[in-house]
Nucleic acid binder design. Structure first.
Lengths: 147, 147
DNA sequence: TATTGTTATACTCTATAACTATA
DNA sequence: TATAGTTATAGAGTATAACAATA
C-alpha cells in the first residue's frame, strides 16, 4: 500500500475526504451506539433540539440543511422511541414544535459520550488541530451562503 | 434561525459535521459534473488510479477503506463509460489491474476543475484554514489505525 | 399563493452472503 | 485455506411529487 503514500499527501478532492472520513466516523459511532437504535444523524437531531428546544420541526430541518421529508422521517423514529415529542402549536395548527423527553435527555448524555469515543477512534483524541477542523466546518455550516 | 447561532459554536458531533458538509459538497459537485454522469466518488477513483496506475482493483478499494463490492460497482460504471479499463494479470488469473483511458484522463482534468469550483461554493475559496482541514483529514485517511 | 407537514414512491449508496475461479 | 472478483439481495439515506390542512 506504500505505492499510495505520496498520492495521499497531494490534493485529494475535499468531497472524497469528507465522504470517506465521514463514513468511517458514522460507522464507528453506529457500532458504539448499538443497542440504542439511534445513529449519528438521530443523535445530532436530539442534540440540536436539546440545545434550542421548542422550535418548529421545519426550523431544525433548515438548520441541518436537510430535506423536510428526510428530517420528518428521523423525527418519526425518535418519537417512536419516546426520545422526543411533537407538540401542536396553538397559534398555527399546521405546525409542531419539538422537545426532548426525559428519556431523550438521558439518552443524549450517554450518546454524546459514546459518539466522542467513536470520533477519537477515527480522527484521534481531542487536539488543537481537530478543534480547528471542527471550528472550520461549524462556521461553514452556519454560513448563510449555503442554501 | 438566529436561535441556533450559539449552538453552532458549541461542540457539534464531528460525525454530523462531516456528514452534513460532506453531503453539501457531494451534491454541489454532482450538480457541476452533470452531463458527465460521474460523482465525487467516481472522480476520486479516477484520480487515485491516475496517480498510481496499474495496481490491483482490490488495492485501490483497500486504500479507499471501501468494500470490494461497492468499489467494484463504481469500476463497472466507469468502465461502462470507457473512462478506465480492467486489464487481466498474466501471473494471477483472478486479478485485474486498473488504468485510465485517454478519455478518462481528459475527463479527470475537467472533472477536477469542476470539483474544486464546487468545493469553493460550499467551503469558500482556498485558504490556509481550508488547507489545514484538508491536511488533517488526509493524514487520518492515511493512518494505519483505520481498518 | 405560500407554508407545515405527511404519504407514497423511487433512486442511490452501501454492505453481507454466496459463489466462481484461482492461488 | 485464503484471496480476487462478481452476482444477488437487502437495508438505509435521501429526495421528489402529490397531497391535506392552514396561513
Amino acid at each position: 500500500m506504500s505505492e499510495f503514500t505520496d498520492i495521499a499527501s497531494g490534493e485529494l478532492p475535499l468531497g472524497m475526504l469528507l465522504n470517506t472520513i465521514g463514513r468511517l466516523v458514522f460507522e464507528e459511532t453506529h457500532r458504539r451506539l448499538s443497542g440504542m437504535e439511534v445513529d449519528v444523524i438521530g443523535l445530532g437531531i436530539l442534540w440540536l433540539v436539546d440545545s434550542a428546544p421548542g422550535q418548529l420541526q421545519s426550523e431544525y430541518a433548515r438548520f441541518q440543511k436537510r430535506d423536510q421529508t428526510t428530517f420528518g422521517r428521523y423525527v418519526d423514529k425518535l418519537e417512536g422511541k419516546a426520545l422526543l415529542v411533537r407538540t401542536p402549536v396553538p397559534d398555527d395548527r399546521r405546525a409542531r414544535t419539538l422537545e426532548l423527553t426525559s428519556k431523550g435527555r438521558e439518552f443524549l448524555t450517554e450518546g454524546k459520550r459514546r459518539a466522542h469515543a467513536a470520533e477519537a477512534a477515527i480522527v484521534g483524541p481531542p487536539s488543537p488541530d481537530l478543534m480547528q477542523v471542527r471550528r472550520f466546518l461549524t462556521e461553514r455550516l452556519n454560513s448563510d451562503m449555503l442554501r
